[in-house]
Amino acid sequence: MENSNPRRLRAADADRERVASAVQAAGGEGRLTLEEVEDRLGAVYATKFTDELAELTSDLPRQRPPREFAPLRHRAFRVHLVVAVALSVLLIVRWVASGVPFFWPAMPMFWLAVSLGLHARVRGFRRGGATAVPY
């Protein structure tokens, strides 16, 4: 029988694709030669178990997850952002219509930006993660 160790996990297609993209990225960065990429990709698609996949990328740096601004996932923050932008546009239109020589909307727009920053920070910590990705 092929699987002498009952604790070995069979690799899924998603596992193979994840490792194949890591190998291709390493080739694109110049960490692997074209021949090495071809050899490893052939081995990736021929593997049956996850521990074999791990061996194919053990000498490569780990890929970082894509950066995402976490508060944008939250509806309340998106509403806050839309309201802040709408108010800023309204303030600028009022300033243009008033003919005042100095840009008085700067201060209210500053406080709108501060409120957005605080909201983003609170949303990040409330969900258990920071708003900035530490890389």
Rank of each mutant, 00 (worst) to 15 (best):
D39T: 15
V23D: 02
P101A: 13
A26Q: 05
R10S: 14
S58F: 05
F125V: 07
P134A: 15
K48M: 11
F110G: 11
L116V: 02
A54I: 04
A130T: 07
R73S: 02
P105Y: 08
T50C: 13
G27W: 02
A46C: 03
V23I: 15
Q63G: 12
A14F: 03
A25I: 09
L53H: 09
E68K: 02
A70L: 08
L81W: 10
H80C: 04
D39W: 08
A113D: 04
L87A: 15
R126S: 02
T33V: 02
L87Q: 05
F77G: 00
E17Q: 14
G42N: 07
L32H: 05
S88L: 07
A54V: 10
F69P: 00
D15H: 12
R40T: 07
P101G: 09
R40I: 04
A120F: 00
L81N: 06
D39H: 12
L34K: 04
Y45T: 09
P6G: 11
Y135Q: 11
T57K: 06
H119A: 12
V37K: 03
F77H: 01
G99V: 10
H74K: 06
V96R: 13
R78W: 01
R73K: 14
E55M: 13
R73C: 00
Y135N: 08
V82G: 05
D39Y: 04
G129L: 09
W95C: 10
F69Y: 04
P66V: 03
A20L: 08
T57M: 04
V89A: 15
V96H: 06
N5T: 10
V85K: 05
P101V: 11
V23S: 02
A130L: 11
P65S: 13
G42R: 06
I92S: 13
L91C: 12
P71Y: 01
L9A: 14
E36F: 01
G117I: 11
A132P: 00
Q24D: 09
E29M: 10
D39S: 14
L32P: 05
N3R: 15
P108A: 10
P134E: 14
A97E: 15
F69C: 00
L81M: 14
T57S: 13
A43Q: 14
F103W: 11
E38N: 12
P6N: 11
A43R: 15
A120W: 01
R121Q: 02
T131E: 01
V23P: 03
R123L: 10
A84N: 03
L91Q: 14
V133I: 13
R18V: 05
E29C: 06
V96L: 14
V93C: 13
N5D: 15
R78M: 05
N3T: 12
W104C: 02
E36D: 11
F69N: 00
P61H: 07
G42D: 13
